[in-house]
Deep mutational scan, measured.
Amino acid sequence: SAVVMEEGSPGEVPVLVEPPGLEDVEAALGMDRRTDAYSRSSSVSSQEEKSLHAEELVGRGIPIERVVSSEGGRPSVDLSFQPSQPLSKSSSSPELQTLQDILGDPGDKADVGRLSPEVKARSQSGTLDGESAAWSASGEDSRGQPEGPLPSSSPRSPSGLRPRGYTISDSAPSRRGKRVERDALKSRATASNAEKVPGINPSFVFLQLYHSPFFGDESNKPILLPNESQSFERSVQLLDQIPSYDTHKIAVLYVGEGQSNSELAILSNEHGSYRYTEFLTGLGRLIELKDCQPDKVYLGGLDVCGEDGQFTYCWHDDIMQAVFHIATLMPTKDVDKHRCDKKRHLGNDFVSIVYNDSGEDFKLGTIKGQFNFVHVIVTPLDYECNLVSLQCRKDMEGLVDTSVAKIVSDRNLPFVARQMALHANMASQVHHSRSNPTDIYPSKWIARLRHIKRLRQRICEEAAYSNPSLPLVHPPSHSKAPAQTPAEPTPGYEVGQRKRLISSVEDFTEFV
C-alpha cells in the first residue's frame, strides 16, 4: 500500500504489510482489554486508547508507543517513533504512522508483537499521559499493580500540603484535648505513684524565703500560729474566702420596643432579638451553673441549684474572672410580681450592659438600685453597626469618660462592650471603697496581704499580753509611738528610695 506524505515531511518511507502472525497476537491482546472507555466527539468514531511506554525494544532499544483501536470491530496495532508526526486519522481507513528506516525489517515488528510479559508489566506500571491515566485505574490494570491496600497518609489540604495544625504542634487546635488526655493517663497511674504529687513543697518555699535578706529584721520574721485558738483558725479560714484573682460581676439587660421607661417590662423579658443573642455568645463562655464549683469559678452570688437559672456566661484571663448576670437567662416566676429574684442580683451590680433595642433613649435610673454606678448603652444600628456610649452617676464623672461614643461592628461589639464594662467596674470598686478611707481597694491579692498582716499583728499583741517580758514586734495601731529626735535631713532622693524599699516589703498600697 502507498502512503501520501504530508508537506514538509521527509522522503517516502516504505511501509510494510503486517504479517498475519502479528495480527493474531494483537487480536488476542485486544480481546482481554476493556472496550468501555469514554466516548469521543461525534466527528471521530468511538475508540479506546491506552498509551504504553516501553523502555527498550528487543534487539533495537527504541521507545515506541502502542495504540489499540477497535475500529470496525477489528483491533489494530500502531507502532510509531515518538519524534515523528502521525498522519491524519479517518473512520474509513486504518491508522497509518511513519516509521524510521531502522524499523524497515519486518522481523523487528514480529519481535515487538512478542514482547515478554516482563516488558508489558513494566510498561503498564509506568506513568501514563492524559486520558490513558484514568483508564489505567480500571480493573483491567489491577493485575499489573501490587496486591494489598496502599499505606494511609496524613490529611492533605486542597493545595496538596499538610495542614498547619499537623506541622506545628504548639498551634494545633487540639492541644488542650491532648492535655486532658495526659491528665487522664496520670489519673490511671499505679498505686505506688499515687503518693507522688507534682509541684513545689510549701515548706521548701518557706525555707528559701526565711533565709532571704527580706527577713533580716525582727519585724519581718515569720511567727508560728497558735493551734489552740479558734479565733485565729477562723481568720485563716476567712483568708480562703478572698480569692487571689480579681472578680467582676456585670449585669446584662435587654430593652425591647416600648420598654425604655418600664423597669418591670425590662426585667420580665425572657429572650431578645437575634443580634442580641449573637452578642451574648461573644461576651464569654456559656457555663452550666450546676456543674460549677464556687471555689474555682466566680459566680457573683448565683445559685447553683437552679434558683437563678441553669446557664450563664463568664469570662476570665490570667488575673481576673468576670460573670454576667443576664436577665433573660434568669427564670421569670409568676409568684414574683416585682421580679425581686432578678433584681437582687442586677440591682447590686456596679455596672450594667444595656442592649437598647427600643429605638428610644434609655435613662440612668430606670433600673432603681443603690449600686448602679455605670451603664454601657448598646444601640443597634443599620448595616451591622452599633452605637456604644457610657452613662454614669455624677459622683463617678471624674473616673469615667462619658463624652466619647463609639461606632462598632457586630463582630467586635462583644469585645468592646466587655472591656468598657470591666474598666468601669474597676473604677466603681475604687469609688465605692472611698467610703472607708482606711481600706482603699487596690486588688484582691493586696486584700489578702492586708488580712495576713492584721492576723500577724493580733498574734503579736496576744503574745505580748500573755508574756509581758516579750517586746511587741508591731505596736498596736491605737498606741502612739514614742517621740523621736529629728534626724539629720537627708537628700530627698535617698528618703524616697528608703521609703520605697520599706513599702515594698510591708505593703503595696502607695504604689497603687
Rank of each mutant, 00 (worst) to 15 (best):
T379D: 06
H271T: 10
P380Q: 00
F371T: 09
H338A: 14
Q230P: 11
I242K: 08
P489H: 11
G369I: 04
E461C: 07
G365D: 13
C340L: 15
L449T: 14
K406I: 15
N372R: 02
T402P: 06
G301Q: 10
V255T: 01
F311M: 06
P475R: 13
F362H: 03
I407H: 04
D317N: 02
H474L: 15
P468I: 11
I319D: 15
Q259R: 02
S229W: 12
G347T: 15
S443Y: 07
K337N: 15
F371S: 14
S409D: 05
P222D: 14
S389W: 05
E461W: 14
V236N: 07
G309R: 15
F373I: 06
M320T: 15
P471Q: 11
E270Y: 04
N467S: 13
G309H: 13
I367Q: 04
V354F: 01
E257P: 12
E257S: 06
M320P: 03
R454I: 07
H345T: 13
V388W: 01
I377Q: 06
I319N: 14
R448T: 09
K343E: 07
Q429H: 11
N269P: 02
C305M: 11
E218A: 07
H248G: 03
Q259P: 02
R498F: 10
G258D: 04
K296I: 06
F232L: 14
R275S: 01
V236K: 13
C385V: 05
R450Q: 07
A251V: 02
A417K: 00
N425Q: 04
L224P: 15
E360M: 09
Q497G: 14
E218Q: 08
L299I: 08
G309F: 08
H451T: 14
K368E: 15
Q457M: 08
D246A: 05
S268E: 07
D318F: 04
I407K: 02
Q259I: 02
C305D: 14
V430G: 02
L472W: 12
S244L: 13
M396C: 13
S235M: 15
S469D: 15
D439G: 06
Y254S: 00
P243N: 07
M320H: 12
Q497T: 14
Y355M: 00
V400K: 03
V252L: 03
E307L: 12
P475L: 14
P222Y: 06
V236D: 10
F350N: 03
L286M: 10
K363S: 14
I446Q: 10
K394N: 10
M396F: 14
A447H: 12
P222H: 07
S268T: 08
N348I: 03
S504C: 08
D240I: 02
V505L: 14
E263I: 02
E288R: 09
V252C: 02
G365R: 05
V354M: 02
S469P: 08
S409C: 05
I502H: 09
E257M: 08
L346I: 15
I407W: 06
I242Y: 07
Q259F: 02
K453R: 10
S504F: 07
I377V: 15
T328P: 04
L387W: 04
V430R: 02
S235H: 15
V236F: 10
V323P: 02
C305H: 09
L455D: 13
E233W: 13
T277W: 07
Q293I: 10
S479K: 08
D349I: 08
V473P: 13
C314A: 12
C392R: 02
G300E: 14
E488M: 09
K444D: 15
Q230A: 12
S479F: 09
H271V: 13
D217H: 11
H325K: 05
F324Q: 02
W315R: 03
V400C: 11
N412D: 02
E462A: 06
T402N: 08
Q391H: 07
N261M: 07
A483F: 08
V304R: 07
T490K: 09
S466V: 12
H248Q: 04
M426T: 03
I353C: 01
P222G: 10
D357Y: 00
H345N: 08
I287W: 05
K453F: 09
D308Y: 08
